[in-house]
């Protein structure tokens, strides 16, 4: 489904990605690991249209999306979260979730002047469902900037989830969390985010990776060094050298 062919991307003299090939396996969680600066976030930015690759091509369901805008990627049912959390800070939790539905055309009444948008029953029901799943119901009237970090991370995922995307790219969803919060996040991803979806998960926490990822891709210096089943990759010699440093 998601097929990246010979992707290269440089920032000045820094080569972030070098002739990278990646074919995502549908409906499983693919972990994307590698040392800092290995090109993981650049790859996700390319997979969501934030950056255009310098060379190579991106296919999604055989459709060439190379050079398309982020808006176009979003409309192809590809959602994401960010390493540095991005929320609409001066909107409430509920509004942040509803904001994800503005460009979705599934509801016929969801036109420009569907008044009032945030009272639209179709959207509200979907938002309430996601709030329930992510345990954010009690915070729905708080502003996003008032939330503690773990809840902000959850809200990012809730926002991605409500649009019912086919692919979700999670960039360090447990970043900055305590072990118990990380455990809760792993449960949420396993039970509510992953089923029926294709997930790409960037993470540094190996316990989270080994717990929920079926497949693993390891990057180093912008190149894919190993790819395979999680347990095999984690014990691969190249991974231990490049990633763990032994």
């Amino acid at each position: 489904m998601f097929d990246l062919r010979s992707i290269s991307k440089s920032f000045g003299s820094l080569k972030a990605l070098d002739q990278l090939d990646l074919q995502l396996k549908p409906k499983i969680i693919t972990g994307l690991i590698g040392p800092n600066g290995s090109g993981k976030t650049t790859l996700i930015n390319i997979m969501t249209g934030i950056y255009a690759p310098d060379s190579g091509s991106i296919y999604f369901h055989q459709q060439n999306l190379t050079g398309e805008s982020a808006e176009c990627f979003a409309q192809k049912s590809i959602a994401r979260t960010f390493q540095n959390i991005r929320l609409f800070k001066r909107m409430t939790v509920m509004e942040n979730i509803m904001a994800s539905l503005v460009t979705k055309e599934k509801n016929k009444r969801n036109n420009w002047f569907s008044y009032p948008f945030t009272r639209n029953k179709f959207n509200l029901n979907k938002a309430h469902e996601v709030l329930e799943i992510m345990n954010l119901k009690d915070q729905r009237n708080l502003f996003a900037e008032e939330l503690p970090l773990p809840l902000r991370r959850k809200l990012e995922i809730a926002r991605a989830l409500v649009a019912e995307p086919e692919v979700i790219l999670l960039d360090e969803p447990a970043g900055g969390m305590t072990p118990s919060e990380t455990f809760e996040m792993a449960e949420l991803i396993n039970l509510h985010v992953a089923p029926g979806r294709t997930i790409v998960l960037i993470e540094h926490k190996m316990d989270l990776i080994s717990k929920i990822c079926n497949h693993l891709v390891v990057l180093n210096h912008g190149e894919k060094i190993v790819e395979g089943e999680t347990h095999e990759v984690l014990s691969h010699k190249k991974v231990l050298e490049a990633y763990i440093g032994i």
């Binding site: 934030i50 982020a70 808006e71 979003a74 960010f82 991005r86 001066r90 503005v102 460009t103």
Partner: peptide, 13 residues
């Protein structure tokens, strides 16, 4: 509030 985030939600900026 965040044009980049709006664009990844599918908004034509």
């Amino acid at each position: 509030q965040d044009p980049l985030l709006a664009s990844v939600q599918g908004v034509k900026i």
